[in-house]
Design a protein around this nucleic acid. Structure first.
Lengths: 343, 343
DNA sequence: AGCCCAGCCGAAAACGCTTTCGGGCGGAAG
DNA sequence: CTTCCGCCCGAAAGCGTTTTCGGCTGGGCT
């Protein structure tokens, strides 16, 4: 049972009572002064604050949270950390909360409902002030329930319960945005290769794209080609399209991965991108877009914004202004070299 | 100032005193019973535990932490969340800690030293029991200092201070592992294209590769080609290599991105992979390895293991068994189709 | 029968902070 | 010179748990 050897036992952290003594006031006054309560003379407050700084005082959040019943803590429950989508949302949320004011507990349920339950209990046990639930796809997911003791915001994947608040990217608008860009580039024979039709993202992007086309009085070239979210599918689908519809001048792809496959096949077939065929992806996954030949234009889902909005909504709920329903965040086009006006 | 409308005000969470009353014992006894203290009769303990379950009692961690001085909380300070490397480490750490026992505060300093300081202070203010610092590259980074009040473990990027404990992947061993695999496949004319030589990972992988080659009595084909971590560089370097050394039968690539570029160029030049040339990457980034033609053999850095080990080391430090120095975690080969024995 | 000791249990203090509430003090009004 | 009123400040009561320490009970020993 040896003690850890030579860690020089530093002076224990300063407490409020130390500050009060140094400033020559009582605990109560010191507390009020530091928390901006109004019942303190300006001069006294100054003295207390100065004392606190001299001692590098940091209030113990446990002691502080005990009377208040708040912890200054929120739980971030994510479906798949590995995945591409949780991370930017998480970062957006983190910086909306701001360092020092609120800290984020991270939990990954790895897509397992049981583990999710477990995490929720653990988080509530820690008395988090609120919860953000991040899905791994945009399909609606089951609600955590209405009777949780803290507010909950769903991000990316909406809750099936309309009484919950969900913040999601505007997939339909994303499809529309993509087509409008292609139209603005003078393209009129546009095809669409997408991923797994079991994903709402695939269906909704297609829906937006088709709507924008028909508003422009144009048909889609062929049907929407649903398949899988892979480069291989992109290659295969592009081959088929170029065979059947040699005249097409743009291929809208359901994801950057698919787009990479499409780019490759177009290149092998001797079609110049963007001169002959424009190619456009979704997700703006830098690792894929930047390495393409040419670099890939893509629709960014603004996930950081989704995260920030979710965090703000949680704040609003703390203040007693809960919202509900599904709020969508507009997407954003990032133009690189794979799309350009027809010359 | 309206109250939030119809959230049915649920009964407030059960406290220890409720449990005690229901079990017909005092607070002290209830506490001891639930915490496994020995001074309670088995029968009494049973009654208390049953009462606790009936009430779904969960101790308030703030109240619990106050006397104990521990919070059951650690801080995870990462350099770049976007990056590929923090995430698996984070997941490894998360599951080593186990749900419910320890919760992880996540902070991202985005590579900014000032913001890092800020986060460290915020975390210490929250009285975390320990810190894990995750870097975004394997190059040594400055220490947080020796006089922090809690144990610190550095993961992925080692600390420059040998008194700190760092857990890093074995980059030299990774280079060695890669070459040994190629040798086992009967390859003998091996070239190496790597990334930015400013990265220790690039230099150390090359070092291990060259060492393994020279132990086998073989030279490297050409020099190590350092460049950047991009597909474009992979394509360019591969073109150069195939021109100058037409006889080579394997190209070891410093990252999966580079490898993707190399694959592409080899294919365009009509070299069959793996029949004519084997190609091998590092990092095992699934999104890149699986989409290649053919799918890419790669060296996995075992980052989850790095995270788990870091978490365990932190536990050890809590128990008064701190370690120091740099500990390396061996890497692991993931064989796909881009390497195969010469037939 | 008297004593001692082990085994259990409960009263109370402590942890560090916030907040309520009462009281002192000074100045203005009467 | 009183009286009253506002403004500041401090004493003290919590917040929910752990832990210490003293007391009670009952059994075994003398």
């Amino acid at each position: 049972m040896t003690q850890p050897p030579d860690r020089p036992s530093r002076p224990p952290a300063a407490k409020l009572s130390d500050v009060a003594r140094l400033a020559g006031v009582s605990l109560a006054t010191a507390s009020k002064a530091l928390n901006g309560r109004s019942q303190v003379r300006a001069e006294t407050r100054r003295r207390v604050i100065e004392a606190a700084e001299r001692l590098a005082f940091q209030p113990n959040p446990m002691a502080r949270g005990l009377p208040a019943g708040r912890t200054g803590t929120v739980g971030l429950l994510t479906g798949d950390l590995e995945g591409r989508f949780s991370i930017p949302i998480l970062m957006g949320a983190e910086d909306a909360f701001g360092v020092g004011r609120v800290a984020v507990f991270l939990c990954d349920a790895r897509g397992d409902a049981l583990r999710e339950q477990h995490h929720v209990r653990a988080l509530l046990g820690r008395r988090v002030d609120g919860l953000i639930v991040v899905g791994s796809r945009t399909d609606p997911r089951s609600s955590l329930g209405r009777d949780l003791p803290v507010p909950v915001v769903y991000a990316y994947a909406p809750s099936t319960d309309p009484a919950d608040l969900s913040i999601v990217p505007d997939s339909v608008g994303a499809g529309r945005l993509a087509v409008e860009h292609l139209l603005a580039c003078g393209r009129s024979r546009i095809a669409h290769v997408s991923g797994d039709p079991g994903y709402a993202a695939a269906r909704e992007r297609a829906e937006g794209a088709v709507a924008a086309l028909s508003e422009a009085g144009l048909p889609l070239v062929g049907e929407v080609l649903f398949g899988s979210w892979s480069e291989g599918w992109g290659r295969a689908a592009a081959g088929m399209l170029l065979d059947r519809h040699p005249a097409l001048d743009a291929i809208l792809c359901g994801s950057d991965q698919i787009a990479r496959g499409v780019l490759e096949t177009a290149r092998e077939r001797g079609r110049r991108v963007p001169e002959d065929v424009a190619v456009l992806g979704f997700d703006n996954w830098e690792i894929l877009t930047s390495g393409g030949r040419p670099p890939l234009t893509s629709v960014d889902l603004n996930l950081e914004q989704v995260g920030r909005t979710a965090a703000q909504a949680l704040f609003a709920a703390f203040e007693g202004q809960p919202r509900s329903g599904v709020e969508t965040i507009p997407c954003r086009l990032v133009i690189r070299e794979s799309t350009a006006p027809l010359s």
